[in-house]
Design a protein around this nucleic acid. Structure first.
Lengths: 152, 152
DNA sequence: TTTAGTGCAAAGGCTTTGCACACCG
DNA sequence: CGGTGTGCAAAGCCTTTGCACTAAA
């Protein structure tokens, strides 16, 4: 766990400059969440942080989360039912490489998987459509093993 | 054009029951937008409809758009900069088949392309991750031919 | 000492909802 | 008529912003 916290702290250092108490708390919490792989809302994060520091402001969490998303430390996964959850991105923290997400429509668990659309396929679409592709997003929605009825 | 309008009206019939003036106007406007392939916000749609019927309420547009999204008549494309645009879905209206979107990050044009991740690849991920995949979303972001600097 | 960072509360956007009325069937 | 659909305005969410204050370097 300490590994993740350290890396998140380093990432924050690389962005903003100062190590404040709120950011430190946030890094610690995100370290835990990274291990568990849970998705979370800003509200949930804020609530959790206030357990440690009751005066910590909501805006601070929003501001820091935004920075972390820009820095690709956090991913934002959009379930199509209106739910949107942040998740610590394994790619930047433990070098899992290029990945996309499996999103469970029932319990909202999010998992990374490292497979992707082959580059030559993207290239083909790009040429055919005369469209310069810079990035892409791919999410598979369904049910995780805990939410699915037992298989035969 | 009339083709699209007819199909959208039919789709609305299939959902709600009554043909009201607001819904008719909305179907006509969406017919035009389907031909042009433009993405739009609810606000833009509302503004356009008020040109025909100044007393048409914003809530009506929201309510109808929501129904159409649920019915997969409209797609919602999420640019990652906060922009979200609706688009008439070719798949349900003119049977273009399974498709995904090319989204221009500059002018916010949205185009459909019919290529997709091969089913056996999805199947492989599904088995490997022990995750039952029900649906997926794939969007390619980049620059369309009009927003891109001239190629050599 | 300097200035990024913070907390608070207010303001913003966008979307939904409650309610009385309108109007389709 | 009966009940869906509508318009309006108010309320709800989630997020951002302004400002004075705190504290890191």
């Amino acid at each position: 766990m300490s590994d993740y916290v350290q890396k998140i702290e380093n990432a924050l250092d690389a962005l903003g400059e100062r190590k404040s108490r709120p950011r430190q708390l946030l890094a610690e919490k995100l370290g835990t969440l990274a291990v568990e792989g849970h998705g979370f809302t800003v509200e949930e994060l804020w609530t959790a942080l206030r357990a440690e520091n009751p005066s910590l402001g909501r805006a601070t969490v929003f501001r820091t989360v935004k920075r972390l998303v820009d820095a690709k430390i956090l991913d934002l996964i959009d379930f199509l039912d209106g739910t949107k959850l942040y998740r610590v991105c394994g790619e930047s923290l433990i070098d899992t490489g290029h990945h996309h997400h499996l999103a469970c429509l029932q319990c909202h668990a999010i998992r990374e998987f490292t497979f992707c659309l082959p580059a030559d396929q993207i290239e083909r679409v790009s040429r055919k459509e005369n469209f310069w592709v810079q990035s892409h997003s791919l999410t598979l929605y369904g049910l995780c093993e805990f939410c699915r009825p037992q298989q035969p």
